[in-house]
Amino acid sequence: MIGGSPWTRRALATAGILGLVFLTVPILVVIPMSFSSAKALTFPPPGFSLRWYDAFFGSPQWMDAMWTSTFVALISSVAALLLGGLAAYGLRRGSFAGRDWAEGNFMAPLIVPTIIVAIALYLGLAKIGLLGSLVGLVVAHTLLSVPLVMMVMGVAIREFDPRIEQVAWSLGASWRYTVWKVMLPNLAPSVFAAWTFAFIGSFDEVIVTSFIAGRYDTVPKKMFTELILEVNPTITAVATLLIGLTVLALAAVTVILARAGKLKQTIV
C-alpha cells in the first residue's frame, strides 16, 4: 500500500466509511421503520408493531400485485435464461456475420434509457392492441432481463473449456447427453446466478411496467403510485420484504458461486 502519513490514512478511512454509510443508510433506515407502531414516518420508531405487515398481507390489492409480480418475474426470467443462455453459447462458440452487432443489440436494453424502452414499447404495443396485457408485460420483462443473463452466461461459457465438450462428442456422447451430463453440471452455478439476477431485475422493474401494464399492478408499480400520491408506512413493510428477498437471493448466489470457485469471475 502507498504509505502516507497516519493522518492521511485516517482521513481516507473516514472518507471510505462515510461513503459506505451514505450507500447503506437508506436500506438501514427502512427496516426499523417497517416495525414502527406510529402512523407517521418518525425515526427512530416510538414502538414495535407488525401492523404494516398486517396491512400488507391483509390487502387484496397488494396480494394481487404480489401474484402478478411473481408470475411475470418467473416466466420472464426463465424465458430470458433459455433464450439468453442459448444465444450466449452461440455468440461465444460460433462465428457468423453480424455477431458483434447481435451481441451489442442484446446488451442494448441496459444502455438505452429505460424511459425510451418504455415509450417505444408503449407505442408499439398500443399499435398492435397488446397494451395492458400480460403477454406484453412478460415480453418486455424478458428483453430487459436478457443483458443480465448474457453478462453472466457469456463469461461462464467463455471460461468453460470447449475441449471438454469435444471430448464428450468424440467419445460418442449424444448432444442430449453432452448437454445434461457434461455442460449443465459445470455451468449450473452460473445458470442459477443468471436466473436470480433476471428474477430480481424483473421483480424490481418499475418504469416500463408503469407505462405498459395497464390495469395490472405489480409490487413496484403499486409502490411507485402510492409514493407519488401519499406516504403510507405500509410501503416500509413492502420495502423490507424486498430487501430481505434480495439479501437471501444474493447470499444464495454468493454461496453457490463460491463453492464452485466462480465468485471472482462473475462479480469483478
Binding site: V206, L227, I243
Partner: peptide
C-alpha cells in the same frame, strides 16, 4: 457496495 446495487431503486429512493 453490491447489495444496494440490487435493492429496488424505489426502496432506496423512498428511504
Amino acid at each position: 457496495v453490491v447489495l444496494p446495487f440490487w435493492v429496488s431503486i424505489l426502496v432506496r429512493t423512498y428511504a
